[in-house]
Design a protein around this nucleic acid. Structure first.
Lengths: 237, 237
DNA sequence: CGGCCAGATTGGTCTATGCCAATCTTGTGC
DNA sequence: GCACAAGATTGGCATAGACCAATCTGGCCG
C-alpha cells in the first residue's frame, strides 16, 4: 500500500485528466471512474469533492461533473465592489435581498459591537447578492449607523452603496480595514450562491472609518473561495 | 425526513454541545455520538469534519476529538510577518526549511512570470514555516530576484526577511500587493502544519515593489484558515 | 411540429462494516 | 517504582450497497 491515501492519488489523476480540458467539459460519471480506478464510488466522491472545493470541477445533480473555469480577481482598494469591479473588466451587479432601518436590540450584538452602538441606536442594514458576469460571487451584509431617510430608494437608484453614501448622504469613507478568513458554506450560501455544502468560502469583513476615525460602515461578505480572489495593494506611508 | 441533511443537523447539535466548553475539552467519540444520535459513524464523521475545517474542533488519531480555540488575527500592512506579529502581542518565529540561490529554468515558470525574470536569471528562494506562540501557522516561500552573496547567514542571523533585505542589501520595498484566496491542504501542509487533508487554507501571495515599480519580492504563503485571519488597512490617497 | 410524461441517468445522502494506524492504558517483570 | 510490552481505544480510510432527488432523454400524443 502506498503512503498516500487512495482518494488523494485519484484526485491527482483526475487533475491530470482535466488539466487540458476547456471549462465546462463533462467528465466521466462517478460510477464510471470508480470502475476505471477499481475503487469504490465513495472514494471517488471524496477525490472529486476536494477538486470541487478548489473550483476545478463543478457537480450538478442529475446532470454530471464538469471542469471549472479560472478565478476572478477582485482588487479592493479604497473603493467598493461596484466601483472597482468595473475597472477590472467584468460586469458587476447586485441583487438586493433586503433593506431595513433598524434599532439596536439584543439580536444585534455583533453589529453593535463593531460599530460601537448603544442599544436603541438606529442603523441601516442591507443584504445583497454580489454577481460577476451574472454569476453569484458572494453574499454581503452592510450596516451603516444612523437614520438615513429615503435610503432605500436612493440605493436602488444608484446601485452602488459607496456612491449613495457619498453623493446622497455626505458620508465619506476615508479608511477601511479588511479582514479575511476562511468559512465553510452552510444552507444559506448553498441556496443563494449555488455552492456545495461545506465548500470553503472567504469571509471578508470591512470596517469603514471617516476622517474623525468614527466607524461609518461595517460589512460582512461571504465570497466563493473558488471564484474569488481578494487583493489589497498598500503603499508606504 | 427533514429538508436539511442529517449530517448538518448533527453538526449543529455538536456545535451547541461544545459552545460553552473551554478549548481543549475532549468530546465523546465518533462511535458514541453515532449511537447517541442513532446514525452511522460515517455521518457523524462528516459533521465533525466540517467543524474541524472551521477550527471549532480538532481530531487526533488514537486520542480523541477536542474543542478548539479562538483565531489569531494577523495585521499585514507594509511590514513583514516578523515585524507586525510582535506588535499584536503574540510571539512570532520562523523555522527555515531551505535557502537556495537559483537560476531560472523550466521548473520555475511560475516564479519567473511573477518576477518578470528571463531564463537563466538568478534569484534566491527561501522556504520557511511561520509559527505563532510555537504553533505552526503557515508555510511561506519567498523569492527575491538577484544574486545575494552571504544571504543565508544574514537571514539566519536577523530572522526577519524584510530587515535583512533592507539593512544588508539595501533593498527597500515600498509597495506591496497581497492576494488572498482559498486553498485545500495537501500532504505537504498536513505534514508541516499539522492540519487535516483537505482542510481550507488561506493562500496569500505577495508581490513587493521598490520605488521604481520593479518587483523585488514574490512570496506565497499557505496559512491555516482556522488559525489565521488576514487584515489589511488602507487609507485614502 | 410542439408539448408533455415516463423512464433512465447522475449526483446526494446514508447505512453497516471492516481493517489500519496512532495513541493511551494497563499490567507484568525487573 | 520504573520501564517496557501487550492490548484496548480512537480516529483514518475504504468498501458495497441502498435509496432519494434533480436532470436529461426519448417517445407518445394531440
Amino acid at each position: 500500500m502506498s503512503e498516500l491515501p487512495k482518494y488523494y492519488v485519484y484526485k491527482m489523476r483526475i487533475l491530470e485528466m482535466i488539466a487540458d480540458l476547456p471549462p465546462g467539459t463533462l467528465i466521466p460519471t462517478e460510477r464510471t471512474l470508480a470502475l476505471d480506478f477499481g475503487t469504490s464510488r465513495t472514494t471517488v466522491r471524496k477525490a472529486i469533492g476536494e477538486l470541487v472545493a478548489e473550483g476545478k470541477l463543478t457537480r450538478t445533480q442529475g446532470s454530471g461533473t464538469y471542469t471549472g473555469g479560472p478565478k476572478i480577481t477582485h482588487v479592493r482598494q479604497l473603493t467598493s465592489f461596484t466601483e472597482d469591479a468595473q475597472a477590472i473588466g467584468y460586469t458587476p451587479s447586485s441583487e438586493i435581498l433586503e433593506i431595513e432601518q433598524l434599532r439596536v436590540d439584543g439580536s444585534h450584538a455583533v453589529e453593535a459591537a463593531h460599530m460601537h452602538l448603544a442599544p436603541g441606536a438606529p442603523f441601516v442594514r442591507v443584504r445583497r447578492i454580489r454577481l460577476g458576469n451574472g454569476e453569484p460571487l458572494g453574499l454581503e451584509t452592510a450596516c451603516i449607523p444612523g437614520e438615513l431617510a429615503g435610503f432605500d430608494e436612493r440605493l436602488r437608484e444608484r446601485g452602488s452603496l459607496y456612491a449613495t453614501l457619498r453623493e446622497d448622504f455626505g458620508i465619506r469613507i476615508t479608511e477601511v480595514e479588511d479582514g479575511v478568513e476562511t468559512y465553510l458554506a452552510g444552507p444559506e450560501e448553498v441556496r443563494l450562491l449555488k455552492v456545495e455544502m461545506g465548500s470553503p468560502l472567504l469571509r471578508i469583513d470591512r470596517t469603514g472609518f471617516d476622517d474623525d476615525g468614527k466607524v461609518v460602515e461595517w460589512t460582512v461578505g461571504r465570497f466563493c473561495g473558488d471564484r474569488f480572489r481578494f487583493v489589497a495593494r498598500t503603499r508606504a506611508a
